[in-house]
Design a protein around this nucleic acid. Sequence first.
DNA 1: GGCGTTCTAGAATATTCGTAG
DNA 2: GCTACGAATATTCTAGAACGC
Lengths: 161, 161, 161
Amino acid sequence: PSLINPNNFPAKLWLLVNSPCVHSIHRDAPGEGLLIDQRLFKCELLGAGRGCAMGPNSDRAVETAGLFKTKNFASFIRQLNLYGFCKSVSGLEGSMEGAKPGLMGADGSSSAGPLHHFHNPHFRRDRPDLLIHLKCLTRANKVKLGASLEVKCLPPNSFQL
Amino acid sequence: PSLINPNNFPAKLWLLVNSPCVHSIHRDAPGEGLLIDQRLFKCELLGAGRGCAMGPNSDRAVETAGLFKTKNFASFIRQLNLYGFCKSVSGLEGSMEGAKPGLMGADGSSSAGPLHHFHNPHFRRDRPDLLIHLKCLTRANKVKLGASLEVKCLPPNSFQL
Amino acid sequence: PSLINPNNFPAKLWLLVNSPCVHSIHRDAPGEGLLIDQRLFKCELLGAGRGCAMGPNSDRAVETAGLFKTKNFASFIRQLNLYGFCKSVSGLEGSMEGAKPGLMGADGSSSAGPLHHFHNPHFRRDRPDLLIHLKCLTRANKVKLGASLEVKCLPPNSFQL
DNA sequence: GGCGTTCTAGAATATTCGTAG
DNA sequence: GCTACGAATATTCTAGAACGC
């Protein structure tokens, strides 16, 4: 019944975090969240070619070209929220701990953008089976899902203790 | 009872994907789907001779001439949907893995059109016997087929994990 | 109350037909409809740079860059229908009578694409004041507009007598 | 009546904008 | 400041409906 549509946002997100060619977004250490480098993300995936170290002949330009139609980082954040992701105000800033290697320029200028930490209980590294619970939370879909669990955000480890 | 009419759409489609002369449409790697190059398709099969590298003396112009009456790519898509094919926007874009060779100009300009990926569980490379299940899904036919399997789209390998 | 949002489709359309830099879409002779050259439109406005006579340094590339996010001509047609435009199957084919000059290549190959004729009683050349009646006909908006006049298409001069 | 072609509409997600908290 | 969300439009994919052969 509820199969994963490869055209929709969750599938794209899963593709990105598992792609060795994408350097702007990946999992955090516990595997329950996402770490997103805003500047790199705009370069790699939103077509902001300027101020970015990669050229048009980059390998990753192929696989992820046209994945999103927007050029606004805010729209990507809106998608995350629509699918139940919430921001964690962790202390990390400007450093990609556990980050994939590469793409760092000689002066390190291409990274070091604002770093965002999001998480979603249904987006775990080892649990692709939970992806079917990621629904676009439109008004209509919320009604369908019933007045069931109205758990909002912020409960699960908003601070890493 | 249910024989395959060579004049109907499924038979034509089977002919196309198995023809060595047709370069705009062929199977994907798993053999369960179709890859269609929109620009090439319009040139080869819909009579849009302009902007296309092939001349009127091309060999493939003979075999497939007049296969379709339409000149609109959208009408071809409507047929695909009517026979139960569904689109998946897989990650491949502009790369034809397992593609047939040829027709690519020196600058590659004649290909590289928008690439569409469709699939249908009854249109498998090694299973011509399943073609009899491809029915034109008109209102009347849907009623005949009963409220039986309401499987819509996306089942076959919708996500490669 | 009902002001025209310059970011919405009707305003963009009005901009296009009145721009001297856009050659793929303009008004028909009576000023009640639109004539759209599909091939030119895809080149000028949908980013199909290939097979098009204009280069990236073209003047019109500036004004209309990023007006639409889609690359599919079908999506543009969907917008036309959503705003109440209907297609007229007039007799003209491949000729732009009353067309703006320019952009025609030496061999005339850059034009001569499929020509579409649409019209809408609220999109008249001399009546920008009617634009406020162009509403996105979503389900919700239709309900708001009430079960009032259910006039569909084709009434207004479907054939030019 | 079945099938192909065409035009329009439904339905769901994607994108944008504004704003409450 | 700034996060999350409502609401409206935009885009995509599929289906309905009408018509001709």
